[in-house]
Simulated scan of single mutants.
Amino acid sequence: MVIQCTHLNQIRKVTPSTRGCRECLMLGDPWVHLRVCLTCGHVGCCDESKNKHATRHFLATHHPIIQSFEPGEDWMWCYVDEVFMD
């Protein structure tokens, strides 16, 4: 059975809020990889980073879909349906 994302209607044309993880920049902390929220444009660090700001953003806002903000990567992840999309 193929799991499909049921939240594609929440994707918006967004402008990334920063060029790095917004919260890590304020804290002066490093990050590993960046993710952009496809509902509002928030840029946060991935779960491999110590602060996990992309996931924290999802937990606070319930914005379901992020996209990799890394050069050359174009995948998306739906937190709610727990599915990767190319």
Rank of each mutant, 00 (worst) to 15 (best):
V2G: 07
I3F: 11
Q4S: 15
Q4L: 15
Q4I: 11
Q4W: 13
Q4N: 14
C5L: 07
T6I: 09
N9T: 13
N9L: 11
Q10F: 14
Q10A: 12
I11A: 08
R12S: 10
V14P: 09
V14K: 14
T15F: 00
P16W: 01
T18W: 13
E23D: 15
E23C: 08
E23Q: 08
C24L: 00
M26H: 12
G28S: 02
P30H: 02
W31D: 01
L34Y: 07
L34I: 03
V36M: 09
C37P: 12
C37E: 12
L38Q: 12
C40W: 02
C40L: 01
G41P: 01
H42L: 00
V43H: 00
V43P: 00
C46W: 07
D47K: 07
E48N: 10
S49L: 00
S49N: 04
S49T: 03
K50C: 08
N51C: 06
N51K: 13
K52E: 04
H53G: 01
A54T: 06
A54I: 05
T55E: 05
T55A: 12
R56D: 07
H57L: 03
T61D: 05
H62R: 10
I65C: 02
I65F: 03
Q67G: 04
S68V: 05
F69A: 13
P71I: 08
P71A: 08
E73F: 11
W75S: 06
W75A: 05
M76W: 04
C78I: 08
D81C: 15
M85T: 02
D86E: 15
D86K: 06
D86A: 07
